[in-house]
Lab assay of single mutants.
Amino acid sequence: DTLHVTQDGKHIELRGLSEEEIKLVEELLRRGRKVEEALKIIEELRK
């Protein structure tokens, strides 16, 4: 699936995420994380 995010005035499209990963990214962003940080966390969880 694809998640569309706008952060720091930039539109970012995150592709290839599972539904659970999207929920996790959304939660991390709500808690003030940056998109880059959220993606690093997803990458770690995929290992």
Rank of each mutant, 00 (worst) to 15 (best):
Q7E: 15
V35K: 03
L14M: 06
R31F: 12
E36P: 06
L3A: 08
K10D: 13
T6E: 14
T2R: 06
E43I: 06
S18G: 03
R46G: 02
K40S: 12
L28V: 06
K40L: 12
E20F: 13
V35I: 12
K23L: 13
H4G: 08
E37P: 00
V35N: 02
L24W: 07
Q7Y: 02
K23W: 10
E20T: 13
H11V: 15
L28M: 13
H11W: 13
V25K: 01
L17I: 03
G32Q: 02
R15N: 13
G32Y: 02
S18D: 08
E36A: 11
R31W: 14
A38H: 00
K40H: 11
A38V: 15
S18A: 07
D8P: 06
H4Q: 10
K47F: 14
E21Q: 01
Q7K: 02
E43S: 07
V25L: 12
L28I: 08
G16W: 05
E21T: 02
R33N: 12
D8A: 05
R31G: 12
L14Q: 03
V5C: 13
I42C: 00
R33V: 15
V5M: 06
L14C: 05
L39W: 07
G9R: 01
R30E: 11
L24R: 04
L45S: 04
K47A: 15
R33G: 13
E13T: 10
I22V: 11
K23Y: 10
T6K: 04
S18I: 04
Q7H: 09
K10C: 05
K47G: 14
L3W: 05
I22T: 10
K34I: 06
G9L: 04
E26C: 15
E37Y: 11
E20W: 13
E13K: 03
L24C: 03
R31V: 13
H4A: 09
I12E: 09
I22A: 12
L14S: 02
E20R: 10
E27R: 07
L3E: 07
R46C: 02
L45K: 05
L3C: 12
L14I: 15
E19A: 14
E13Q: 10
K47P: 05
A38L: 10
S18V: 05
L3M: 12
I41Y: 12
E20K: 13
E21G: 01
L14T: 04
H11R: 06
L17N: 00
H11S: 06
E13N: 08
L28H: 05
L39H: 02
L24K: 06
E19P: 15
L45R: 05
L17Q: 00
L29E: 01
E36K: 08
V25C: 07
G9N: 08
R46I: 02
L29C: 03
K34P: 12
L39N: 02
D8H: 02
K40G: 09
K10S: 13
K40C: 11
R33F: 15
R46Q: 04
L39A: 04
I41S: 04
K23F: 11
E20S: 13
L39Y: 05
Q7P: 06
L45A: 09
R31C: 09
L29F: 05
L3R: 01
E26G: 11
G16K: 04
T6N: 10
K40F: 12
V25T: 04
L14R: 01
L3G: 10
V25Y: 06
I12Y: 15
L28Q: 05
L17H: 02
E37L: 05
V25W: 04
L39P: 00
G32V: 01
R30T: 08
H4P: 08
K40P: 01
T2K: 09
L3F: 05
I22P: 00
G32E: 03
E19K: 15
E36L: 10
E26Q: 14
E19Y: 15
L14G: 04
K10G: 09
V5D: 07
R15P: 09
H4T: 13
E26D: 10
I12F: 15
E44M: 07
L24V: 10
E43N: 08
V35Y: 06
T6H: 13
E37H: 08
I22R: 14
H11M: 06
H4L: 13
K23S: 11
S18R: 07
D8K: 01
E37D: 11
E19G: 13
E37N: 04
K47C: 04
R33T: 15
I42G: 00
I42R: 00
E27P: 01
V25D: 00
E26V: 15
T6I: 15
I12C: 06
G9E: 09
R46L: 03
D8L: 02
L14K: 02
R15E: 13
E36F: 11
S18T: 14
R30K: 13
D8N: 08
V25A: 06
T6M: 15
A38Y: 02
L24D: 01
L17C: 01
E44H: 08
T2I: 14
E26H: 13
E21N: 01
V5I: 11
L3T: 10
E44R: 05
G16R: 03
I41L: 11
I12N: 07
I42H: 00
E37M: 05
K10A: 14
R15L: 14
I42M: 04
H11K: 07
L29Y: 02
L17W: 04
E19L: 15
K10P: 08
E20N: 13
K40R: 13
H11F: 12
G9A: 02
E36M: 09
R46T: 02
E37S: 05
K10N: 12
K23D: 07
A38S: 04
I42F: 01
H11L: 13
E21Y: 02
I41Q: 07
K10V: 15
E26I: 15
K47E: 12
I41H: 08
L45G: 06
E20H: 11
R15D: 09
E37K: 03
E37Q: 09
H4V: 15
I12Q: 07
L28Y: 12
G9H: 07
R46H: 03
V25G: 01
L45W: 08
E27M: 13
T6D: 14
E37R: 02
T2E: 08
E43D: 13
R31H: 13
K40I: 10
I42Y: 00
E26M: 15
L24I: 13
R33Q: 14
K23M: 12
D1E: 11
E43R: 05
E43V: 08
K40D: 10
V35S: 03
D8Q: 03
E26S: 12
R46E: 01
G32D: 04
H11G: 07
E43W: 08
L29G: 01
D1V: 06
K23I: 12
E20I: 12
L17E: 00
I41K: 06
R46N: 03
E20Y: 12
E21M: 02
E21L: 02
L39E: 02
I42N: 00
